[in-house]
Design a binder for these strands. Sequence first.
RNA 1: GGCGCCAUAGCCAAGAGGUAAGGCAGAGGUCUGCAAAACCUUUAUCCCCGGUCCGAUUCCGGGUGGCGCCU
Length: 312
Amino acid sequence: MAKGILVVTGPTATGKTALGVRLAKALDGEVISADAMQLYRGMVIGTAAPTPEETEGVPHHLVGTVDPRESYSVGRYVLEASACADDILARGRLPILVGGTNLYIEALLRGTGFAAGDGDLRKALEAEYDALGGENMLEKLRAADPERAAKLHPNDRKRIVRALEIFRLTGKTISAFDEESRAAAPRYAACTVALSFRDRAQLYDRINARVDRMFAQGLAEEVRALLALGVTEKDTAMQAIGYKETAAALRGECTLAEAAEQIKLASRRYAKRQLSWLRGKEDVHWFLWEKETNYQEASLFSTRILEISGII
RNA sequence: GGCGCCAUAGCCAAGAGGUAAGGCAGAGGUCUGCAAAACCUUUAUCCCCGGUCCGAUUCCGGGUGGCGCCU
């Protein structure tokens, strides 16, 4: 009986999905997706979401469960994913968290509670930021939460606004919330395996090839269908790499070939950011693909460290 | 063969007689309710040779390479 969670993360296009399925079968587990975009319904080609064939019968949670016109949040993810994890654990199986959205993974594992947001207040603060400028807003934040203000750059509109929003809404600073949740014991015991390639060029080749495959599989049609549904540029779902660029091409702003190049570029940069998030975290166990390695080895490696961690 | 123009980082590109903007790509990083997002940091001694000058990458001459035009 499992006493914790196995996490499979790493940059895009490193085989997380396939390894997740393999591990679930080997370890009597179920997969919980940790992907901020696979969550949306109707976005399977561009997010490389697991298809029914790919899941090979392994239950996958939180894939395609959200309307793409809706906007999601980390807070909601923590709620939904922890409900899934608790249920899987209660049934005596192993929850396997698979995905590259590391913010979601960390928040879930830590059990971070998020102060509820307020759309109107946020809009007002954003307007204020645009009118007054970053320096002035940061100054305002400094008055309320000097600690947080010291860490933010004046151009970081998103975070300055959120910090101010939390303070006005709750009367408590984001630093205080931060401290509380960091002090608390993690919600789940977890063992993290991160997949990547020993050679960066190899990772980039995989990404580029995958983008070409997505177009061959009908990415343009998928995007067209979303637009027909009424999904707009403003929706979070349309911020997904592959979708925003394709939508621009469909609008005639560029050719599909140019969109494909943009998507490759954006994906490579995304992978780089994922790498930099993970790099340096001590509790991450890296499995680096090389020419000779295969899924069986990755699977054995993961199982091994899972045993060592005492989770199974 | 003649004339003209150009030669600056991986690419595009600005520029001054005193030691070279910017953009893109690349690399590194931050991350507590949009995170496949947002934000930050970072990269040259200016084609070669000679000359003028206190000092040239910037001026002059030659070479080489590219582009255009002419016979």
